[in-house]
Computed example of a mutant assay.
Amino acid sequence: MSRTQIREERWSPEPGGWRVWRRQVYLGSGHAFWEQSAAALLHGEVKTRSGFRISTQDKVRSGAKPQIIVPVGPASIHEPVEVVDVVECGNLAGFAYRTLPGHPVCGEEAFILRRMGPAVFLKIRSLTAASDRWTWRSVFWLLLGAQRFIRWRYLRVMRQRTS
């Protein structure tokens, strides 16, 4: 079980500098909506439609180590990650990844779609701490602000995905 799953109920900084966040939102309803949303999520569209590029456009799979690329003006930031879990069964679809050395932050992020009757919900969970690299650690407070904005984008694009 990943740290994100263990600590999903906590919201504030924990000892060691870990910050835990989660949010669940209603996206829409119906079988077609579920199918489209699950396919989009499992192909990484929550990231790509939020402005990121991913080194592979394949369906997410456990053990994969894609590079997430963040365009910043003429430059780009590479975020190495490893997909640690993928679920696609019944009324659940989603994935979780952990950051690898060199990522601007240290932690995990999970995106889980849940179907309850006709209703479709998206839950995003994250566990974040400062990077192991001093260059990123020195701007951690800026990264936390960017993270809040990106989470808002994740929720927005998944709502718009099948509207």
Rank of each mutant, 00 (worst) to 15 (best):
I112H: 14
L127S: 11
T99D: 05
L100V: 05
R98W: 13
R115I: 08
S126G: 10
P104S: 08
E109C: 01
G117T: 12
L113G: 07
P104T: 12
R98H: 06
P101D: 03
V105Y: 01
A119R: 13
V105Q: 01
G102S: 04
R98P: 02
G107S: 13
L100D: 00
F121M: 02
R115E: 12
R115C: 04
L127N: 04
A119P: 03
P101N: 10
R114F: 05
L113K: 07
G117A: 07
L122V: 11
A110L: 02
H103V: 09
T99V: 09
L100C: 00
L122C: 13
P101K: 06
I112T: 15
P101I: 12
I112L: 14
P118Y: 05
P101A: 03
I112K: 08
F121S: 01
L122G: 13
I124N: 09
K123V: 13
V120C: 06
F121W: 01
A119N: 05
E109Q: 02
H103T: 02
P104M: 14
G117E: 13
P118C: 06
A110F: 06
R125V: 08
L122D: 14
T99R: 10
L113W: 12
L113P: 01
L127R: 03
I124S: 05
S126R: 13
A119Q: 09
F121G: 02
G117Q: 10
R114T: 14
V120D: 04
V120I: 14
A110N: 05
L122R: 12
G102Q: 09
E108M: 07
F111N: 07
R125K: 03
L127T: 13
L100R: 08
C106F: 14
A119I: 00
V105I: 13
V120M: 03
K123M: 13
L113M: 14
V120L: 04
T99Y: 07
R114W: 07
P104G: 10
R114C: 10
P118G: 09
V105E: 06
T99F: 12
R98Y: 02
T99L: 08
P118I: 03
E108P: 01
I124M: 12
R98I: 02
I112G: 10
R114P: 06
K123C: 11
P104D: 11
R125P: 00
P104K: 09
R115M: 10
F121V: 01
R115L: 05
V105S: 04
H103Q: 02
A110Q: 05
